[in-house]
Simulated scan of single mutants.
Amino acid sequence: MRIVIIGAGQAAASMAARLRAGGHEGPLTIVGAEPVAPYQRPPLSKAYLLGDMGLDRLLLRSDDWWKDQGIELRLNERATAIDRAARLIATDHGSLPYDALALATGATPKRLPAGMGGELPGVHVIRSLSDVDALAPQLQAGRRLVVIGGGYIGLEAAAVARKLGLDVTLVEAAPRILGRVAAAETADMVREMHRSHGVRILEAAGIERITGTDHVTGVALQDGRNLPADVVITGIGVLPDVAIAHEAGIHIDNGIATDDRGRSSDPAIWAAGDCASFPWRGQRIRLESVGGAIDMGETVADNILGADRAYEPKPWFWSDQFDAKLQIAGLGTGHDRIVQRKGDGMHGGSVWYYHMDQLIAVDALNDARAYMIGKRLIEAGKSPDPELVVNAPDLKALL
């Protein structure tokens, strides 16, 4: 059986490794548009951007490992079309046949609408290695940075820039930072931490346009204010990369729609990672996370080999900002109650999400114990009384 994976990120790497571990001895090819072997993305906006991690540590596997496993990496090669009837993939370098095809195409950064200045030199996004390699030399002490977007990527970039000595302003159009992904209580902790490090955070501040002619000079807000800027980072979210699937007639629904096995509307084509949506608790969701890419990639690999195993996500996320770590277990979507537990440090504590008395998620800032215990409780289906969470002298007793 000839297996081809389009995309060369975490999901693709995890899938390929699992296929070989599961006994697949036939041809196995990864087609990736970037010129480098599969690498970690989370450190790009943190340690790599800060200069604390080199490319060698970003790589998920060594060159020798790929060769030893007999996995063909076709890098710097973009898949352009899928001929489902012939089971053939066209690329900008040629074509290749498949018996089973897995799409791990990831996601692409959202861009500002045309005419808002997002194409000006000095405006950057953070998604790929090349994005960060272009940005890093611009982050010089004393320069003025405006970050557009108060999600995790924007906040991480703001933290790195402050550590490098830049003057940083973060602008969020919504009423508060982390509005789509975390409770107000978590946002309050993160906002206070950033402000204590000198980041100016402007919330409910819409962007009119980015100003400049040959290079960015500032960011004009809808309320008439103008923020001078030498560098701008836009972190306004991502979109699943579904173009090649859509053009091939594969069903799209908030990503490449799969069943609970990871199979698309074409029985010979599978999907995993940020590009894939799957059924979960009566809805269809995508998990933009390393954990999701690994788990779903491995599930798809098993099912290509005949396991017929349902994908059961166990969501977990993290974000490093300054010297703090925000760890998240579960998904807080649909919560109807929140309780907060104080941590030991100045910037720390945990937020516990409940839905109909069921514990569904925990956010923990600088509180690894709360994260680990919360994660174990969620995975075991246990829900301690919220008052106990707040008042228990030792969280371990909740187990």
Rank of each mutant, 00 (worst) to 15 (best):
Phe322Asp: 06
Leu73Met: 11
Val160Met: 06
Leu112Cys: 08
His197Gln: 13
Leu19Ser: 07
Gly150Gln: 04
Gly179Lys: 10
Gly235Trp: 02
Glu208Pro: 07
Gly22Gln: 11
Ile236Cys: 10
Ile82His: 00
Met356Phe: 12
Gly343Trp: 00
Asn254Glu: 09
Arg143Trp: 04
Val147Ser: 10
Gly154Ala: 06
Gln69Lys: 15
Pro175Cys: 05
Gly292Phe: 03
Pro279Glu: 03
Ala159Gly: 12
Ala107Leu: 07
Arg127Ser: 11
Arg87Leu: 11
Arg209Gln: 15
Arg2Thr: 08
Arg74Asn: 09
Asp367Phe: 04
Asn76Lys: 13
Glu192Trp: 12
Tyr98Gly: 03
Ile378Phe: 09
Ala114Pro: 15
Leu287Tyr: 02
Val231Trp: 00
Gly306Arg: 12
Gly345Cys: 13
Leu388Lys: 12
Arg225Trp: 06
Thr299Tyr: 08
Ile373Lys: 04
Tyr152Ala: 10
Lys375Ile: 02
Gly165Ser: 03
Ala107Pro: 13
Gly54Met: 04
Ile177Ser: 08
Thr91Val: 12
Asp336Phe: 04
Gln327Arg: 09
Tyr152Lys: 02
Ala173Phe: 06
Val146Phe: 11
Ala272Glu: 00
Ala37Trp: 01
Ile6Glu: 02
Arg57Ile: 05
Arg87Cys: 14
Glu387Arg: 08
Ala229Trp: 01
Ser14Gln: 15
Gly150His: 00
Asp133Pro: 05
Leu287Gln: 05
Asp241Glu: 13
Asp131Leu: 03
Asp363Asn: 09
Arg191Gln: 14
Ala182Ile: 02
Gly115His: 10
Gly7Phe: 03
Pro43His: 09
His24Ile: 08
Val232Lys: 00
Asp357Glu: 11
Ile244Cys: 05
Leu166Pro: 01
Ser350Val: 00
Tyr311Pro: 02
Trp316Thr: 01
Gly151Val: 01
Ala368Val: 07
Arg111Ile: 03
Gln358Asn: 15
Leu326Tyr: 02
Gly151Arg: 00
Gly282Trp: 02
Arg209Cys: 12
Ile201Val: 10
Asp357Pro: 05
Gly349Cys: 13
Ala229Met: 11
Gly106Ile: 03
His246Phe: 14
Gln10Asn: 11
Ala370Leu: 02
Tyr354Gly: 03
Gly115Trp: 11
Ala12Leu: 08
Trp280Ala: 13
Gly115Ser: 10
Ala204Thr: 05
Gly334Ser: 09
